[in-house]
Computed example of a mutant assay.
Amino acid sequence: MNDLVPVIPATPVSPLRQRLIDDMTMRHFSRETQRNYVRDVGRFAAFLGRPPDTATSEDLRRFQVEQREAGMPIPTMNSVVSALRFFFTHTLDRPDLARRLVRMKQMRKLPVVLSRDEVVRLLGATTCLKHQAALSVAYGAGLRVGEVAMLKVRDVDSERMLLRVERGKGGQYRNAMLPADLLTLLRQWWKLGREQGVMHHDGWLFPGLHAMKPISTRQLHRIVVEAAQAAGIAKRVSPHTLRHSFATHLLEDGIDIRIIQALLGHAKLENTAFYTRVATRTMHAVTSPLDKLGMFLPSEGTPPG
């Protein structure tokens, strides 16, 4: 499966939809993004009751107002805005309409982060070497779940100790770190996968149920949830939790935030800086100016805590 292959609906494709698909394919949008954009533009067309290329600024305003009044979640509303902005800017060459779309502000929740002990327990609770290797890549290299799924065997560069991420967010290419212990684990998985007949030099690093297709992101999500339950971890865990934990643990170890930004593939430093809010070891390493005043030293016999 190639995630750059355009989405081909079962029904005949209209020229306008095909043009949208071609525009996304040309920009190396992932298969999932293409599917979502086609769906969201179709949602607007259904609201409009006529082809979306006939829309006016007032149509867009009414559409967003009705979405909000219907109680549509803010992340979903913003996803629709992204799809429509692309459609009007690139497919229709109507940036004037794209500017009429409003993104909703959303309070960003603190990410769930596992302690190092919890990571050890989670990885140890996986049911097979393939699953352990896949989750170890997510944590050890800080990859997104889609990036883990789309890795191929040839993306493992043991000479430079890098993982080549060719299908990152927004179609971006980058290099991720390849820790020595992770390479050892991947070599074990390669040997076992070859014995099982599911691993090939030009194949997927983590094949799905069919060796010619990669593991699905849904399956990776199920794997991490089941491993967390088996490990007795009560936190709400997803594959992205391992990426959050990777970034937070690096920050706590004193790694420069710009290096972490590059490892994560973040376009904006502010996205990486968000992890300073959950890096507890970094916070504990800071001495409060109140403590430096020395006004409230404990007296003898005062119990701690």
Rank of each mutant, 00 (worst) to 15 (best):
residue 77 M to S: 15
residue 105 K to Y: 03
residue 104 M to R: 04
residue 106 Q to G: 07
residue 98 A to N: 07
residue 84 L to I: 06
residue 81 V to Y: 06
residue 89 T to W: 07
residue 107 M to G: 07
residue 84 L to Y: 00
residue 85 R to G: 11
residue 100 R to Q: 11
residue 93 D to C: 00
residue 103 R to C: 13
residue 87 F to N: 02
residue 106 Q to S: 07
residue 91 T to F: 09
residue 91 T to A: 09
residue 101 L to F: 01
residue 88 F to G: 01
residue 104 M to A: 13
residue 79 S to H: 10
residue 77 M to E: 14
residue 83 A to P: 00
residue 97 L to E: 01
residue 97 L to G: 00
residue 102 V to T: 12
residue 78 N to I: 07
residue 103 R to M: 15
residue 80 V to N: 04
residue 81 V to N: 04
residue 81 V to P: 01
residue 94 R to Q: 02
residue 108 R to V: 10
residue 94 R to E: 03
residue 107 M to H: 05
residue 105 K to L: 12
residue 93 D to M: 05
residue 87 F to R: 02
residue 77 M to Q: 15
residue 86 F to S: 08
residue 109 K to M: 10
residue 103 R to V: 14
residue 109 K to I: 08
residue 87 F to I: 12
residue 106 Q to K: 08
residue 84 L to D: 02
residue 104 M to P: 02
residue 82 S to Y: 12
residue 90 H to F: 14
residue 100 R to Y: 05
residue 86 F to D: 04
residue 107 M to K: 13
residue 76 T to E: 13
residue 87 F to A: 04
residue 96 D to F: 07
residue 104 M to S: 09
residue 79 S to I: 01
residue 101 L to P: 00
residue 97 L to F: 06
residue 88 F to A: 02
residue 78 N to T: 09
residue 93 D to Y: 04
residue 84 L to A: 04
residue 96 D to T: 02
residue 76 T to A: 13
residue 104 M to N: 01
residue 96 D to C: 03
residue 79 S to L: 01
residue 105 K to C: 12
residue 92 L to N: 09
residue 81 V to F: 09
residue 94 R to G: 03
residue 78 N to C: 09
residue 86 F to H: 15
residue 103 R to S: 15
residue 80 V to P: 00
residue 77 M to F: 09
residue 79 S to M: 11
residue 97 L to P: 00
residue 81 V to E: 03
residue 107 M to Y: 10
